Amino acid sequence: MLKVGLLGAGRIAGVHATAITAHPGSTLVAVSDYLPANAEKIAAQYGCAARSTEEIIADPSIDAVLIATSTDTHSGLIEAATSAGKVVLCEKPVDLSLERACACLAHADKTGKPVMIGFNRRFDPNFGALKKALEAGEIGKAELLSITSFDPAPPPVAYVKVSGGIFRDMMIHDFDMANFLMGAAPVTVAATASSIVDPEIGSVGDFDTAVVSMTYADGRIAVIKNSRRAVYGYDQRVELLGSRGLLQAQNMLENTVVKSTADGVTGAKPTYFFLERYMPAYAAEWAAFVEAVKGGGSMPVTLRDGVDALAMAEAATASAKSGGAPVRVDSV
C-alpha cells in the first residue's frame, strides 16, 4: 500500500484526495496547508491526519507526496521531497520561472527519485483514444494539430496577478497536449494575445484571449486557441489532420439528448468546468502514478515534460509581448 501525504488543501487538493482514497493501492495518511483549518477539513473528510508540510516530508513512513500548493512553492517542495527519498506527483506548472524549473529538474535527477507532473489531460479517455488511433497509423502522419481550450468565465484578478499569466497557467496544458500528440516539442512559437474579456486582466499585464501557432522541425504545424470566456461552457476540443485522414475529440456534453422540431435542432451545452469535464482523467492520472511507482517503471509524464511545456509558455509570452514575432523555444 502506497502511503501518501497531500501538500495543499484547496479545491484541486480535494480532487486529488478523492483519487488517492478511491484507489485500492494507495492510502492518504496526512495533509498539510498554510491555512491549518483547510488541512483539518480535508483530514476530517478523508480520515487522515492534519500535519505540517515539514512533518510530512520528514516522515520516513510516507512513500509519496502529492503537491497541490501554490505554483511558487512547487520547485522547492519537489526538491525537499525527493531529497527525503519520496516519489512525487506535482500539479502543473513546475514553477513560474523556467530557470528555477531547470534547477529543480537537475536536483531531482541527482536524487534519482521519480517525479510526475500533473498534466491530467493526457489521461482523458477521449484524448487517449485519439492518441492511440494516431499511433496505430489510422490517419497516417500527423501534419496539422488544432487545440481549442476555452474557459466558461475568467478567474478573479487577484488570481491572475499570481498565476504567471495565461500561457503559464492555462495554455500550458495545451502545450503539453501538443507535445503528447506530436511526439516532440516545436522549434518556434508565435503568439497573438489581447485582453478583451476583462480589462482588469489587461491592467495587471496579462491576456485573456490568445492564439499560438507552432512549427516543428519536420514542417508540421500546431495551433492553440485559448479564451477566458465561453458563455456556453467549458470548450475542450482537439482536431488532428494527418496524411490519410482526420481525428477529432469533441466536447463532453451535459447530456446526449438532441431535440429536433420545426424550429430547428438543439442539444446540450458542454460540461461547465474542469471538475465536471476531467474527473475521470484525475483518477486515471493517479492510477498511472501508482502503477509506475509500484512497477518501478518510468513516469508517464516526467519532470522534463513539465520543463518543456514551461519553455513553450516562456516563448509564447515573449512572442506576445513583442507583437507576435516567432520565438525559438531553445532561445528561452
Rank of each mutant, 00 (worst) to 15 (best):
M1K: 12
L6D: 00
G8S: 05
H16C: 04
H16D: 09
P24M: 09
S26V: 03
V31A: 12
A49P: 12
E54H: 10
I57R: 03
A58W: 10
A68H: 06
S70E: 11
D72A: 12
L77D: 12
I78R: 00
T82S: 14
C90R: 11
C90N: 11
E91N: 09
K92P: 06
K92G: 08
S97C: 07
E99C: 10
A106V: 08
H107V: 09
K110E: 10
G112N: 04
G112Q: 05
K113Y: 11
P114W: 07
P114C: 13
P114M: 14
M116N: 03
F123N: 01
D124K: 09
P125T: 09
G128E: 06
L130V: 15
A136L: 07
G140E: 09
A153F: 07
A153R: 12
P154T: 00
P156S: 01
A158K: 04
V162D: 01
G165T: 03
H173V: 01
F175Q: 01
M177T: 05
G183I: 10
G183W: 02
A184I: 11
A191G: 02
A193E: 00
S194G: 00
S194Q: 03
D198V: 00
G205Y: 04
Y216W: 06
R220Q: 05
S227T: 02
S227Y: 00
R229V: 05
Y232S: 14
L241E: 07
G245S: 12
L253G: 00
L253A: 13
E254G: 06
S260P: 08
T261V: 11
D263V: 10
A268F: 06
T271L: 14
F273M: 14
F274E: 03
L275Q: 15
Y278D: 15
M279G: 06
Y282T: 08
A283N: 08
A284V: 04
E285R: 11
A287L: 12
A288T: 06
E291D: 15
K294V: 07
A309K: 10
T317E: 02
K321F: 07
K321G: 01
A325E: 15
V327P: 01
S331V: 08
